[in-house]
């Protein structure tokens, strides 16, 4: 049984700016299955963020049809269909880590005992058990970003949208977090949309790689990964991985030759 969680049918998204219209997305077609790990990759300005925000109903397409969990994106947002992770952790300095993770739960009206149980569970999931009482400034950048992932997971949305979540972190921390994220994805079976501009990151994580190119922002290639779901870090040295990375790089290059 394959259920489409997200479908985009010929969506355009044009920003009206003082310098005239900016075509952030043009003719975007996409289907994402339940449980997919989808990476969006492309040079900056190709509309990755805009596409993710449109799925999250933080932007509205100017044309085309977009559906999330069978609803229009805004209905899905109101039904709390997804958790969103930004590049910066965005934790409140005046709340503890547990308080931050519990914030969406408070807003959604979860009972207190339930909140505590959920906070403990997701902190454990991102390997931050025991840090609930700490304040954000007492944690490293990588730990803060894990806390923000825990916050996005706390209310059991089955879609996780992440916009360059590890972009601001150094490579070593990033590797560890990527491994942990894959582990988390396998455990929870969530559908993940993940924006990146790193080829190895996209190839390592994804079941589906969406290659995009700018002016106007569009999808130039969608690659289904042949890699197994069990992926130790050293899979990156296998010929399959290298071939896939090459294919992504080719896709990016083709996108560029348009202009």
């Amino acid at each position: 049984m394959t259920a489409y969680v997200i479908t985009a049918d010929q969506i355009d998204l044009t920003f009206q700016t003082a310098d005239g219209p900016v075509h952030a997305l043009k003719g975007v077609d996409l289907t994402i299955n339940q449980g997919d790990f989808v990476s969006f990759i492309g040079p900056s300005g190709c509309g990755k963020t805009t596409l993710l925000r449109a799925i999250a109903a933080l932007e509205a397409p100017t044309a085309g049809r977009l559906s999330v969990n069978g609803m229009d994106p805004d209905a899905a947002r109101r039904a709390r269909a997804y958790g969103y992770v930004f590049q910066a952790p965005g934790l409140y300095p005046w709340r503890t880590i547990a308080g931050n993770v519990g914030l969406p739960l408070e807003i959604m009206g979860f009972a207190k005992a339930d909140r505590a149980a959920r906070i403990a569970r997701v902190l454990d999931l991102v390997d931050l058990a025991g840090f609930g009482g700490k304040y954000p400034w007492q944690l490293s950048g990588g730990m803060q970003q894990r806390a923000s992932i825990a916050r996005a997971l706390a209310f059991d949305a089955d879609i996780l949208l992440m916009d360059e979540p590890f972009g601001a972190l150094d490579e070593i921390v990033r590797d560890r977090l990527n491994e942990a994220l894959l582990e988390l994805w396998r455990k929870t079976g969530k559908t993940i949309g993940f924006v990146t501009h790193s080829i190895p990151e996209a190839v390592y994580l994804s079941t589906k790689i969406v290659v995009m190119s700018p002016r106007p922002g569009r999808i130039t290639k969608v690659i289904d990964s042949p890699l197994p779901t069990q992926r130790p870090l050293d899979i990156r040295d296998t010929p399959e991985f290298i071939a896939l990375a090459h294919e992504v790089r080719e896709g990016l290059r083709e996108g560029h030759s348009y202009d």
């Binding site: 933080l58 969103y84 409140y92 807003i107 959604m108």
Partner: peptide
């Protein structure tokens, strides 16, 4: 970004006011 997060949780205006 903070306001977008609140929106993604479908927070009401008064929740955004008191908490953020």
């Amino acid at each position: 970004m903070q306001l977008d997060l609140m929106r993604s949780w479908n927070a009401s205006r008064s929740q955004v006011f008191w908490r953020l």
